[in-house]
């Protein structure tokens, strides 16, 4: 063999051996057992401590209150939403107590008015809604009820109400177009208000021969966009004018 080759072979042989040895001794033992990773890492992550105990954990001690809570509107709002992570409290119930947010600022996190929130979600304007009174003076957070059924639709449909309030339809009551059962205010999902069904409904005010005040814009229902119902082009809560 050429001298050069044999000398270089020694150098490369030593390096290769070092690599093989390093691999043998340094690769973590659990690496590659399941996939191309340390199987022990999964166990380490699985072994992390939980902070939120889960709503089932509360029932074993706070039976009464959980029973009440599970029956009412906030049934899907887990205890730890308001009271914070409870795992430590479950382990040491007397030493570690959980906070109960009673200040006025807390409830608006969910119930403060925000147009980005889905319509139908109960929202109030924290500035004008019984200013300075803590929410819990009127509402029991475990069994929330409005002190009286909301007389205003805006309690839940704030975004629509606010839009309508600055539109040409501001003076029309919601119930003028939506027939609403009393039950809707109690179980809103089960008793839905009605919606107008025909062009003739809008025609009562906007038709050419309607008996409404004359400054209300008129269209000839026979020719005006005859293939469509009115609200396919106009938004009744904020009607567009040409």
């Amino acid at each position: 063999m050429r001298q050069q080759i044999s000398r270089l072979s020694i150098v490369f042989g030593v390096l290769l051996l070092a690599l093989v040895l390093a691999r043998h001794f340094l690769i973590p033992k659990s690496f590659g057992k399941i996939g191309h990773y340390r199987a022990a890492a999964v166990d380490a992550i699985a072994a992390r401590k939980i902070k939120y105990a889960g709503h089932q954990a509360c029932a074993s001690c706070h039976e009464e209150i959980v029973k009440l809570h599970d029956d009412r509107r906030h049934r899907n709002v887990a205890c730890e939403v308001c009271h914070g992570p409870a795992a430590a409290h479950v382990e040491a119930p007397t030493e570690i107590r959980l906070p109960a947010p009673k200040q006025r600022g807390y409830c608006p996190l969910c119930h403060g008015y925000d147009p980005s929130r889905p319509t139908g979600f109960p929202q109030i304007d924290p500035v004008s809604h019984n200013p300075l009174k803590p929410c819990i003076t009127c509402h029991n957070p475990h069994a929330p009820e409005t002190p009286h059924t909301p007389e205003e639709c805006s309690a839940c449909h704030g975004e629509i109400a606010r839009t309508k309030a600055v539109s040409h339809h501001a003076l029309l009551p919601c119930t003028g177009c939506h027939e609403t059962q009393k039950q809707h205010k109690i179980t809103p999902q089960l008793s839905r208000p009605s919606k107008p069904a025909s062009r003739a409904f809008c025609g009562q005010c906007h038709g050419v021969d309607a008996s409404s005040p004359k400054e209300i814009p008129r269209v000839d229902l026979a020719t005006h966009g005859e293939r469509y119902v009115c609200w396919q082009c106009h938004y009744p809560h904020f009607p567009e004018l040409k």
């Binding site: 050429r2 001298q3 050069q4 044999s6 000398r7 270089l8 020694i10 150098v11």
Partner: peptide, 13 residues
């Protein structure tokens, strides 16, 4: 690396 062969064959290699 101790490869000290200076022969023409070696150099042409």
């Amino acid at each position: 690396l101790g490869a000290t062969d200076l022969s023409e064959r070696s150099l042409s290699f």
